[in-house]
């Protein structure tokens, strides 16, 4: 367990945490404001990656493809909200789960029908493709550092947006009492649409930024969606701050667990037992963590205060 390996894995964990935050932020906002469970949030991450590939093919430039993908994702989010989601706000969670599950089936199969079954790839932008020397014997890909920095910047921007602007104030007010906000003359329907589309755009940003690192394929958002659920359950549903803290915890625990669980077990058990149990424990670590946190605090680490 050398220091360099530890630093590299910490950075990898941070990177996963940042991606998770970008997805979980939209999920928790939509849940906090509209009391809406959106399973299809993971496919919006996938759409972001596919849109980035599509626009890169059209323009040949990642710098152009990224903003175009974000605009398109915002528009798609808006269209989906108007066509389907707004009919579901008043329904119970079961209906929401089922309808958005149907949407996952459509979109996961839709990209296969449009782009083919084979995974796509997006080349790394030229300017960001190098590596940076962090310390002796350790260099880390520049693009991954940029991804971490971009995610942190978005998190800071989001915090400012929610706590300091009028739009953010309305979002917070909507989360605590939507009916009252509506009675005070705010167009709550429009607010909901915008929050929803904004959340879709954040997920698409994560997908587009991750596209050069991963293979872009149908279903790529599904497992991240489940991780994002773990994040917002740990963080406290509806809380942006909770989502941020929990994202980093989950990202780090998952990544470090996978790299070091076997080594740590070797300290106490025979190597063969450690080799058997290590991967199993590592793959379950975050779920065990979630169960432990929920056991102590059923509402998560930062329960958002909601008036009945």
């Amino acid at each position: 367990m050398s220091t360099t390996l530890l630093v590299v894995q910490m950075l990898n964990g941070l990177q996963l945490g940042i991606l998770l935050f970008l997805i979980a932020a939209g999920l928790t906002l939509v849940f906090g404001v509209m009391d809406f469970v959106n399973l299809a949030h993971g496919v919006q991450y996938m759409l972001g990656a596919y849109l980035a590939v599509l626009f890169w093919r059209l323009t040949g430039s990642f710098a152009l493809a990224l903003p175009l993908a974000l605009v398109a994702a915002f528009a798609i989010g808006l269209a989906l909200e108007l066509a389907i989601f707004r009919r579901l706000y008043a329904r119970d969670h079961l209906d929401q789960v089922l309808a958005t599950f149907g949407l996952i089936l459509i979109l996961n199969d839709g990209v296969k029908a449009l782009f083919g079954n084979a995974p796509l790839s997006l080349p790394m932008p030229e300017a960001l493709s190098g590596a940076v020397r962090i310390m002796d014997g350790l260099s880390y890909p520049l693009y991954r550092l940029v991804l971490i920095a971009a995610g942190l910047a978005v998190a800071a921007g989001l915090a400012l947006l929610v706590s300091r602007t009028r739009a953010g104030m309305l979002v917070r007010a909507g989360a605590s009492d939507a009916a009252m906000v509506s009675a005070l003359g705010v167009d709550i329907g429009r607010l909901f649409s915008l929050v929803f589309a904004f959340g879709a755009m954040l997920a698409a940003f994560a997908g587009a930024m991750a596209a050069p690192l991963l293979s872009v394929e149908s279903g790529m958002g599904d497992n991240l969606l489940v991780l994002a659920f773990v994040v917002i359950v740990i963080g406290g549903i509806g809380s942006i701050r909770g989502a941020f803290v929990a994202s980093l915890i989950v990202g780090l625990v998952d990544t470090l667990g996978r790299s070091f669980a076997t080594d740590i077990l070797k300290l106490a058990f025979s190597p063969s037992a450690a080799n058997q149990a290590g991967p199993a424990i590592a793959s379950m670590a975050i779920y065990i963590l979630m169960a432990a946190i929920l056991f102590v605090r059923p509402a998560g680490l930062f329960p958002a205060s909601r008036s009945a």
Binding site: H93, V233, Y287, M290, L294, F295, P298
Partner: peptide, 18 residues
């Protein structure tokens, strides 16, 4: 079962993933 509503949906999902 200690959790309510939507958290129950997510936690059962997470345990199945586990």
């Amino acid at each position: 079962i200690r959790t309510r509503g939507v958290a129950f949906i997510m936690i059962t999902l997470a345990f199945a993933q586990m």
